[in-house]
Design a protein around this nucleic acid. Structure first.
Lengths: 197, 197
DNA sequence: TCGTTGAGTCTACGGTCGTTGACTGAACTG
DNA sequence: CAGTTCAGTCAACGACCGTAGACTCAACGA
């Protein structure tokens, strides 16, 4: 493991090893989820030693937290139509980039409490912004359903690899989903002001 | 554990114990997922012995398979509008009943290969029927997206417990989702340049 | 009544896990 | 060049897991 090319400064060597570990951790967490991924497995994939992983990152949990970071969504606001388009654009991004860190978070969100909280918080934030833009009595529900749709689509494509959703292009998916998302964001306005019951 | 009421036939006693184990297993698998649920934990929750769980159900995997059974969806066919309504009705059912068996399957589908296959197969079957009814070139994609939406909504409500989606009534959710689902099923006909007959 | 069955209990094996700490040797520093 | 630092190695720990098998004893059938 130490027989690398000619000269490598100690700092550079360390940086490379850390990166190998991070890359291996990202890939394994995304593929197997938190529980089935082991420090030993990460170390083996990174051609490093398990003890090294611990020393560099402290603990399995800390490594996961370091690896599975969710890039914050950019703010969403405007008319319901604009909000729908912004959400669709955000979805298109996530459909194309299969960032292993985000996939690790997605994969583990049903079994690892921290991942669950993280995902819930991320969705809640987007939900808050969308709900504010919709301004209807069921705006929170509508915003949540869009979040649910997003999660379902990403999950079906990247993790479950559903036929059709896996193969289609991001643009195609967004194009099919566009009327549906608009229907959810605009329905609030069309709905009559009287409470249904 | 054996000090139950007065008289219990051996068969009856066994039946009761099996049921306690099954109930505990369902609840734990649904709450923690496959990996974090242990035979020992199930036995403790059922006030039984781990060895007994093994003897009655063979293995942890077999117990999971026994517990996490997905009721097959009823067939879907008809015009796109009818298909949309059938799917919405099916979703309403799943929104109300939080059957622990189905939730166990849902919770474990991202980490347990068997659960993953089971869910994928169930969705694929519904996808096949929906796609047949839509008869457009992107019908498979549209059917898959409806499956993705369904998974996302169930997951957000029962497992992630998203605000809004968790509290709303099933009828309310279906009512908000109706235009969206119709948009997905009907878009096929509108886009299809070739006349239908 | 007496041997058989089987529900329930208990102990232990083999394995894997996260984590720790001592150790080695080469790259650094003065 | 001597001393220090630190990347990397190694062996072991305690805990927990699924699972196996021997054991106890009350319900059962003949």
């Amino acid at each position: 493991m130490s027989d690398n090319r000619p000269h490598l400064s100690r700092a550079e060597q360390r940086r490379q090893t850390e990166n190998r570990i991070l890359a291996a951790a990202r890939q394994l967490f995304a593929t197997l989820g938190y529980d089935r991924t082991t420090i030993r497995g990460i170390a083996a994939a990174a051609e490093a030693d398990p003890g090294l992983v611990m020393r560099y990152f402290g603990s399995k949990d800390a490594l996961f937290a370091r690896v599975a970071e969710v890039a914050p969504d950019q703010p969403v606001a405007g008319t319901p139509e604009e909000v729908a388009e912004l959400l669709l654009a955000a979805m298109a991004d996530k459909l194309e980039s299969d960032a292993p860190g985000a996939l690790a978070m997605l994969r583990s969100m049903l079994t690892h409490p921290d991942a669950s909280d993280e995902v819930r918080a991320a969705i809640a934030e987007q939900q808050r912004q969308v709900a504010a833009a919709l301004s209807a009595d069921d705006a929170v529900l509508r915003a949540g359903l869009i979040g649910a749709l997003t999660i379902g689509v990403l999950l079906s494509r990247h993790l479950l690899q559903l036929e059709g959703v896996r193969d289609a292009g991001a643009a195609e998916i967004v194009s099919v989903l566009r009327p549906a998302v608009h229907a959810i964001t605009q329905g609030a306005a069309e709905r009559d002001p009287r409470p249904r019951h």
